[in-house]
Amino acid sequence: MKYAWYPGCSAEGNSFAYDETSRMIAEALGIEFQEIDDWNCCGATEYFSVNQLPAYALVARNLALINAEETPQVIAPCSACYINLKKTDEKMAKYEQLNTEVNVALAAGNLSYEPGAVKSRHFLDVVCNDVGYEAVKEKMTQSLAGLTLVPYYGCYMGRPEDNFDHPERPQTMDTLLKTLGADVPDYSLKTICCGGHMTQLSAEASLRILRHLLEGANQLNADAMVVGCPMCQLNLDAYQKDVNSAYKTNYQIPIVYFSQVMGLAFGMDPETLMFERGIVSSKAMLEKWLTAEPASKKRRRREKRDKNALPMPKQLES
């Protein structure tokens, strides 16, 4: 399986660990990456808000740089990059005028892009749906049993439409983490936005949003929150301390990438998985996992029916 790889700006800074561990996981799973040569920033949410056409042209340059024959699919590990690449491709396909204008702009740099040529994928999507849970299971050398991992998807994996998972009730990461053997509670806030750039604009607003998410995870006794987007990771990790001082709380929830915990289950050395890059320490989580009795795959006894209790409706099959 060979894909184009679009690391995104965060990979060079804040989310270095995500980029590195993704490459490690990919290698283990037999996914081959071809990094786009001389890629540029996707413009995040900022460029689109101010000037639409240059914003599309900015993203389209990346698509144009891909050799579509060789790698007709591009992977973005960052949700914002993923949505921008996907949106640009789709809107160019849908609106003829936009397609023409973007291509006129690209021509100024001797490039061109035909919409539909390159399909944009999120790394989580590729791992779960192209590689598949069965193949992941085969690569596992140890289970993550004993750890309560709360999957947090953020906003873009299922939105605005026709993305790889449900906009309100995504399941991909839940299934992945369950495959790895972890306890995965049903986190009701898993698609609530992390606040994005609000940390830069209004501390009050962003800390309120982050506190909500952390509280939700805390109530589920999370050993860690698992993410697939550098922005989510940054906000929840770097501002956790600020949340604690603003709300007099004491959350100590490490925010880790799904690629990092996959590495654990694949038997990679925690050192190389760069958990120490997180501001909130992952030490407690790792210790808990190491000391968890392998046999303690808590044999949940079937709870006896409380004779007073009313039956619960079944959950909808996903």
């Binding site: 309100e168 009730r169 049903d186 009701s188 409706p313 079944k314 959950q315 909808l316």
Partner: peptide, 15 residues
């Protein structure tokens, strides 16, 4: 109508 189709209302999740 099957209320589970609107996950944000939590039917089937919250007792």
């Amino acid at each position: 109508f099957d209320a589970r189709r609107i996950p944000q209302y939590g039917y089937g999740r919250y007792p």
